[in-house]
Every structure is written in structure tokens, then in C-alpha cells.
Design a protein around this nucleic acid. Structure first.
Lengths: 346, 346
DNA sequence: GATGGCGTGAGTAACGTTTTCCAAAATGTT
DNA sequence: AACATTTTGGAAAACGTTACTCACGCCATC
């Protein structure tokens, strides 16, 4: 039929209005369930809309202030933990009519700013920043342009809401578990951070801090041993190599993220050692491949699904009322013991 | 400063024009490098733009037909193979000024249609569909509304370009490798497909077909053994369980995707068998965790990065000229032999 | 039977940008 | 010096939608 035409013109609200013999205003009102439309009018308009296959043009709606679009900034699309968050998000958004669009490729502060600005420029109704590395001032600035929810960062602002996990408690779970097994030389691989503000706020640094606190609490202050790399598989590989080269090498490694633990496992395998007989390894995030049997990684579960759900809820509330007081939600992690941790070889 | 204001008004082209003492038209012309702007004018306008920190409002541009946005539909955000494609895409797009936004959550034809329609409604300049399951007619329909490039599907259309991998050749590589090692009972786990059109076009069915052809070519027609599940870890687990329960169980399993191989490895480990001593396993995609040493999966590399690059190039060309003849690019896969395949136990 | 209120629908302006014109100025040609 | 041509910059319209304002007719009330 007209599918063969080179380029079809969109069906607009004007077409619907003409078809239903009413004004465009009326069509708009019906669509938005606005006040002042009689039942007969509603029926006429809805009939015309389905007959013409009308879909409102979100790009035009943007000019009037609503796009029904929520942007999510992901720092790394390969980290499967973020997928859990997204699942929770989509589920909570359900059939609210909001469409989620993802922006990725954020390696670095500049790229992150590019993505978030792009989302603002596209008139998104709200944006979700997952573990952003931008300065607090920049987050604050963004939050004044558009409703924002920040995930994973331990900061507090009147301008945006935050959802995060209690990383201190999570680190304590791991250290407690390993110490309970009899380990003393428990090392940690962290994601290097230099910026003083981020040191206070980023989950990775809080996790390292939690490790230090927990080591102290177990009387292992002298055994604190941290290597700084990055939260990537490569970072885990390099970090573990350093640790294995120590004269008195650790009996357990607490990696700051599952993906880091993967790299550590690789370095350990390469060194001809076996896990957990020679050395124990624990991760963080309980990503799907931590559960994968051949690996079966001891880790900390952050309830990504739940995080996503809360995030969606907070964002919707803030979209509805931009002046509402800001909320900080902190969830409690739980320990998942699998097969990469065991008592140290005596 | 004014960051503390409750809600800042955007800087518009009008503000820039006033600041530079020129007309809005002039500002627009300078931005778009249009004809009819003197060097002095350009300087004035650019100065005003930077002084005011102006960023064009993409949502308004959409009303004039260009948003500088490219939408990518991903069927499954957890499959790391797609991340490789995205990397290639972003790299090729480089600093063309286009912003990539991802739409995911496409489990099912309805959700896929929702996402693609949402992208069209947001005025995106072009969309990339990765392994879409929609009917050919629907793809055709989309391509008449917006420039489209389809990745992974073996179809041909005058309305859109396609980039795919030679899945028949890829399957032949695996079967050849296993047969060369001495295997005869080589089974395959496929992604079930019922729709007749999709059977001809989807990469998973082509891969299964390639497996059949290769088995014939090696004189192993009687040993053809296919279980139909899905391209997920669960699908691999269930499929392998079925295969292991066979009275005369296969000595090698060719999983249609790496993630399927992961599930198969899990089922095999659970059955108390070891890989590759008792049974060989091969995957497809060469995802990042296939290379992960503790797994070290034999697989087929599809050059996702390259696929992404070609896709970007084709889309840009089609955006520039919607009437250009359509192009079909088919890339050749390569075999990556690792540690999950070995000669069968004699 | 005039007045007031309310429910219903339409007209109009506005959002920020680009494109299509057109006028004026500058330059080149006889 | 008069005219033709090119260059430069601006005014106005358009894109699709929604919010605001207002007019009309209907009913209840005095």
C-alpha cells in the first residue's frame, strides 16, 4: 500500500482533528485526560486516533516541556551489575508511559558530561546517573536543569536524590567472612582515586575505607594491604600480580568488584596457584557470572534490582514535584558465600 | 552564582543573537556553516556563543528535521558481544556530532516495536537495529520512516542496509575444527525459531543450518543432533542437560553463542564431567569472557568492532542520501581455538 | 424571564530552531 | 557614472504540540 512510498508524512494531531471534526486543542485534551472533554468527544477523538494510527510526536512535545523520556547514564556497559539496576528500573516504570534511553561510552569525566548534556539538550524529563565521576558541583548544576537521581554515590544534596548501597557494611561482610575463616593477611584491590571530593563520595573509595575499618575491628590493622588499580578485569589482573609478588603474599584477596575478581583469578591461575586451596578470592556486586558455577565467586549482593526500583520511584516523584525535599536511600548488602573462599592453608 | 537558582532558563539562540547584536538567523547560519556569513560575523557570533555557554536545543532542532541523534536497539544488554559492536560504532562516529542513545529491554516483538517507535517519535536521525526479531514487513515499514541499518540479519531490502557475519562459514569453522580433532557425535544447541520468515533470516537459524551443511560435508549426516532452546545461559544449561541424558551422548557440543556455552559448561560441571577431557564445548561470538583464562572457550570471532564501524558508515551515508542503493555487507568470521576443545576420549 | 455559573469546545500564542525568501550593501563591468 | 552581479544580513514562516483565554449555550436560581 503506501509502504512503498518513498517517505511517508507523519500523522499529526491536526490530521486527527480534521478526521474527527474537532479542534486540535480537543485532541490534545483527550490525549492528556485534561478537564473539559465530554464522553462523546472522547469517543470521537479516540476513534479517529486509532483509525489513523496516530502517535504523538515526542519531539514536538519536547517544545512544550515533556518528552516522556528518561535518560540513564551508564559508565560501562560491560559491567553486568548495571543490567540488574536497569531491570529494576524498567519494571518499576512499567506502563507509566516513560521510555528509557541509555547513554554509555563514559570513560572519563568529559565523556560523561557530553552524554548528560546531550540528554538535557534532548529535553529528557529526568536523568539517572549511575556511579558518576563528575564533581559534586557539576552534579548540582545538572540537577538545576533537570530532575536527577544519582545512584551509587555517597553524597547528599538538596537538589537531587541518591540511592546507594552501604559499602562500608559490604566491605565488613567480606572481611568478617575471611577473618572468620582464619585469614589474617587479607589484601584489597581498589579503584584508584585522586580527587579529594570523589574520595569522600565514590563507592570504590568507601569500600576501601570499609575494608580498613573492618581490618582494624578484627585486630588486623598491621595486615592492611591495598593495591590501587582500576575496577576492570585488567585492573584485577595487574593488582593480583603485584600482590602475588609480595615476599609474604596474602592468603586472601578482597577485590572491589566482581570484574576485578575475575582478573585476579586469571593472574592466580597463571601463577600456578589454585583457588581456594592456595588463596581465597572475594568480589563485590554478585553479578550474574559470579554465580556461574565454574567460577562460583564469593561476593556481596547489592540488590541491583531493588536499587533500580527505588531509583525509578524517586525520579518519578521528583518529576512530579521538583521542589520536594531530597531523599537519600541506603540499602544493606548481603554476603553470598560460594567456592572461592576457604580457610587458609595452615 | 546562578547555580543556586531554582531553575535556570536555557540560553537560546535569541540570547546569543542579542548578545552579539545580530539576528537569530545569523547565529543559526554560523552554527551550521551555512552560506552567507562574513568572517567578522562568524567571530562575533562564536564569541557570544562561548561567552554565554550556548548549546543548541536538540529538541527544537528536531522540529526542523535534525536531532543529531542515532538510536541503537539492543535485544539484550547482558550479551557482551553487543558491547563490541557499540565500541566500533562510537569510534566510527567519532566527532561527527552525532549522539548515540541505546534502547534495550527488548524481550519480544512487542517491546522491540515499542522501542523503535519511541526512537522514531523522538525524531532520531537514524536507527540501528541489532539482531531484530520483527517481521521483514515491519523492518521495511520502519525504514520508510527513518534511515535504518540492520545488523546480524540475513535479509535484503532496497529500503535499508545490512551488516552481518557469514554464519554458515562460522558454523563450518567449528564443525571442521571438531571433526578435525576426531569428533563424530557433534551436537548443536540452537535458539528455537518458529516463524518461517525469521527461519530464513535470523543469524541463529542460519548458524544451525551451517552446522547441518558442515556435518553433511564431513560425512557426519547421521550424527546431526540439535536441541532447540534459547540463546541464554539458561538455554545452554537446559540444552546441555538434554544432550548429556542421551543414551549415546555427544563427544562435543557446538553452542550457538558463548553465553549458551557458559550454561552448557555449568550443566557439564554439575554432571561431574570435565571439559575437554570428557566432552568438548565450543561457543560463538568470542565475547570478552570467552577469553577469560579460567574458562578459555573455543569460539568464533565475529569482529564486532568492525561490524560496528561498517554500520556507522552505512547509516551516515544513508542519512546523507536516503535514496542511495542499499548495501549488504557480510563479514567473514574466524576460529579462535582455546582450551575447551580437544580430541575425544578414545 | 433576566442573571449567574458552569460545562464544553475553539482560537491563539508560544516553545527554539532552520529555511526561504528578500532588501540592502558592496563589488565588478561597461 | 550608470548598471549588473554578488555578497551579506534580516524578517517571517514553519515544524507539532499544549496552555491560556474566551465565547457560546445550557441549566438552575432568584
Amino acid at each position: 500500500m503506501d509502504k512503498s512510498q518513498a517517505r511517508r508524512r507523519r500523522v499529526t494531531i491536526i490530521d486527527v482533528a480534521r478526521h474527527a471534526n474537532v479542534s486540535p486543542t480537543a485532541v490534545s485534551k483527550v490525549m492528556n485526560n485534561a478537564y473539559g472533554t465530554s464522553p462523546s468527544m472522547q469517543a470521537k477523538v479516540r476513534k479517529a486516533m486509532t483509525e489513523l494510527g496516530y502517535r504523538p510526536y515526542a519531539a514536538a512535545r519536547a517544545m512544550r516541556g515533556k518528552t516522556y523520556t528518561i535518560g540513564v547514564m551508564l559508565p560501562d556497559i560491560r559491567n553486568p551489575f548495571f543490567a540488574d539496576i536497569l531491570d529494576g528500573l524498567e519494571e518499576a516504570l512499567g506502563d507509566t508511559g516513560y521510555q528509557v534511553l541509555l547513554g554509555s561510552s563514559c570513560n572519563g569525566e568529559a565523556a560523561e558530561a557530553r552524554v548528560t548534556e546531550a540528554m538535557i539538550d534532548r529535553g529528557m524529563d529526568g536523568i539517572i546517573l549511575i556511579a558518576p565521576i563528575s564533581s559534586s558541583a557539576h552534579l548540582e548544576y545538572l540537577a538545576h536543569s533537570v530532575p536527577v537521581v544519582v545512584v551509587g554515590r555517597h553524597s547528599r544534596s538538596v537538589a537531587f536524590d541518591t540511592v546507594s548501597d552501604d559499602d562500608v557494611a559490604g566491605a565488613a561482610l567480606i572481611v568478617g567472612h575471611l577473618a572468620g575463616l582464619g585469614h589474617r593477611r587479607i589484601a584489597h584491590i581498589e579503584h584508584r582515586e585522586d580527587d579529594p571530593v570523589r574520595i569522600r563520595e565514590m563507592p570504590n573509595t568507601i569500600r576501601a575505607d570499609g575494608y580498613r575499618q573492618a581490618m582494624h575491628a578484627h585486630g588486623l590493622a598491621n595486615d592492611i594491604d591495598i593495591v590501587s588499580t582500576t575496577y576492570t578485569q585488567d585492573g584485577g589482573y595487574l593488582g593480583a600480580k603485584q600482590l602475588l609478588a609480595r615476599p609474604n603474599r596474602p592468603t586472601a584477596i578482597f577485590a572491589g568488584a566482581d570484574i576485578v575478581a575475575m582478573g585476579a583469578l586469571e593472574a592466580i591461575a597463571e601463577a600456578g596457584l589454585s583457588v581456594p586451596a592456595d588463596i581465597s578470592v572475594a568480589g563485590y556486586d554478585n553479578t550474574s557470572f559470579a554465580a556461574f558455577r565454574p567460577i562460583s565467586l564469593t561476593t556481596v549482593d547489592q540488590a541491583g534490582h531493588q536499587i533500580g526500583g527505588f531509583t525509578a520511584q524517586l525520579l518519578l516523584e521528583r518529576i512530579a514535584n521538583r521542589a520536594k525535599p531530597s531523599v537519600q536511600i541506603k540499602l544493606s548488602p548481603s554476603l553470598v558465600v560460594r567456592n572461592t573462599t576457604a580457610p587458609p592453608a595452615s
